[in-house]
Simulated assay, not measured.
Amino acid sequence: MTAKTLPLDEKSIDPSTLSREALMRELTLQKRPFRILREFMKALEQKRAAKGLGWSRPWNKYGLTVFRTHIHPIGQDAKYLIDARELIQPCIAKLPDEYQLFVDDLWCDPNLKAFTFYHNNKDEWGEFEGLSLSLGRKVAHDPSKRDRIDLILEDKRVDGAVDGSIERVRLYVNPWLTYQNREYKLIEQGGPFEPVDEGYQDFYQESCRRYDRWKTDKSRQWSHWSANYIEYFGPRCFIPKGSSFI
């Protein structure tokens, strides 16, 4: 039987009252006006976030505008990902043993997925451009849930420009086992009085060089129709002078 849209007009739609299944059906059909589909997606994201479903986490969406996403084939980018692991290992070593075991297990998982998200960010610190290296997998006993690690590196905009050096680092270690209770481990560096370790600066510069190589490689580009309606995906709200992502 052919799926039908819900018998609602624009004035009567209240997306928050619809089930996840109904919202997903409406979004998949893409029969509503664009702004209504955006509202559907916002409601769906809120419902999914409330249950901790899927890839999204508060720290990789709120305040961000993701303007490009690159795919990492695990074998092809093995050295790059190993460099990232070695970079964060001193931080991981300071965490409880269960987090260290989680990171080791995740990195060796044959179903590991890895992406880099390039973003603008506006928050109480100011304006930034940066990237998030995100690694994750579906939880074995429930594929609607995710384990993940996010390394977020950001270059602050000052007087309209960035300088290619990062002022802030955030590392989120986030097994579903603890995230189901809204617990995760966050490690931060940076701020007005705290320098960022040189290793992160070197990794950021290498990431920018790879961006420049990959930006025209069609095999590297991630895209999905749903991103058209997700509020934290879209064109940049600003492009700073000296941007590393032109």
Rank of each mutant, 00 (worst) to 15 (best):
F128Y: 06
I82H: 14
L87S: 03
I82W: 14
K61I: 15
A114L: 03
W55Y: 10
R57P: 07
P58Y: 05
D123I: 06
K138D: 12
A78P: 06
A93S: 12
L106G: 04
G75M: 01
D123H: 08
G126S: 04
H119E: 08
K122F: 13
E124C: 11
E86S: 10
P73H: 00
N121P: 09
A114M: 06
V139Y: 10
A140T: 11
L81D: 00
K51V: 13
H70Y: 01
R148E: 15
F102S: 04
P110A: 09
K145H: 12
I88V: 13
N120V: 04
N121G: 13
L95V: 10
I71C: 02
R146M: 12
T116L: 05
R146I: 11
L135S: 08
K113W: 03
R148T: 15
L133V: 04
E86A: 13
R85P: 06
G63Y: 09
K51E: 15
D147M: 04
K145V: 10
P110Q: 09
K79L: 09
H119V: 05
R137I: 14
K145L: 15
L106W: 01
V66N: 10
G54W: 03
N121V: 11
V66F: 07
E127F: 06
V103H: 05
D83F: 06
V139L: 09
T65V: 15
I88N: 03
A93M: 10
G75A: 01
D97F: 11
Y118P: 02
H141N: 15
V66I: 13
I88D: 03
S144E: 07
R68E: 14
Q100M: 04
D105G: 09
C108W: 12
V139A: 06
C91M: 13
L133I: 06
S144V: 05
A140G: 08
P73G: 00
S56F: 11
Q76W: 00
D147H: 06
L81N: 00
N111V: 09
I88H: 07
Y62F: 14
L64A: 02
Y99C: 07
N111Y: 11
T116A: 07
G54P: 05
L101W: 11
V66H: 08
E129F: 05
D109Q: 10
T65F: 14
G126I: 01
E86C: 11
D97I: 12
C91A: 15
P110S: 09
Y62G: 15
P58F: 07
W125V: 07
P143A: 14
P110N: 10
A93D: 10
A140R: 14
D83M: 09
W125Q: 11
L64P: 00
Y80V: 03
A140M: 11
L112P: 02
Q100G: 08
D147W: 03
Y118F: 10
N111P: 10
E129V: 07
E129G: 03
